[in-house]
Amino acid sequence: MIRSGTKGRILDIIFANGTRICALLVFLIIVAIMVSLLAGAWPALKKFGPSFIISSQWNPVTEQFGALVAIYGTVVTSIIAMLIGVPVSFGIAIFITELCPVWLKQPIATAIELLAAIPSIIYGMWGLFVFAPFFGDHIEPWISDTLGRLPVIGPLFSGPPLGIGVLTAGIILGIMVIPFMASVFRDLFEVVPSVLKESAYGIGATTWEVIKKIVLPYTKVGVVGAIMLGLGRALGETMAVTFVIGNADRLETSLLMPGNTISSSLANQFTEAVGEIYTSSLIALGLILFLLTFMVLALAKYLLIRLTLKEGVRT
């Protein structure tokens, strides 16, 4: 009895420390990635200083590099993706939780989530060979004839219908983030206690009023957190964007014109970059992207933590 006890204790220590080491390994990996990115980016950061972030030049011949175009493209495509993805995911979540007949719930939820399972290179091929031609021939002329004529936002939507560009990339990103956000929204909406919803229905509220007045306030912070998670996805997406964004290192007002993102710059140029400064500038772009997703994630976490704290108070 005692012997098995000591043996058990030793195994206990081994097992506990084994799990601890593995957990610390995760931490070490992130540190190692940070260090290697910083070390790789250092020559470029030293040479260009803070102006690296605000310079819109990207000239491999004269070795003058700035990140502004890529940052702009990354942020703008992600915003477009959010403008499409958030309302659509929201609608899907409402449909699944409030409207859908029970037997259809699971199939539809699964189908939407399958969108997330399709590898991003498939989105890229489809985008280049199927979606961009269709979009350029049928949708973009219409956009520049209608939205392009409007005052103020007109310049954003004018230009030749190339089918390739910031808007196309944003739309494909939007499709790609829908399943992530829709499934989190759905989970959130389903944890709203039915007592709350039913009492609202009981006093005669319509479905929309229940969602607006009961479900949304209850899940508010979580919804914002989910949006942030979707945003993090959109920022880092590589292969799909590379195929359809047009990869031009210039700042353009029009969303129909080609642009570039950080990840597509990396995918296009990393293997071809010769010379320390060029490679280092690309790695510096990677570092910026890493920090960008890091910040978005931190914000999401902060909001989600506030949510759980609030729940704690409530119960």
């Binding site: 491999p60 280049l128 031609p133 390739i164 590379t242 047009g246 071809e272």
Partner: peptide, 26 residues
Amino acid sequence: NAKAVAWPTGIGGKGNEGVASYVKRI
């Protein structure tokens, strides 16, 4: 003259196939 330059105008396709498919479409 370089493997990548700061192009004064135009759009960029990934790989020969990217350029070919842009030219075919536009």
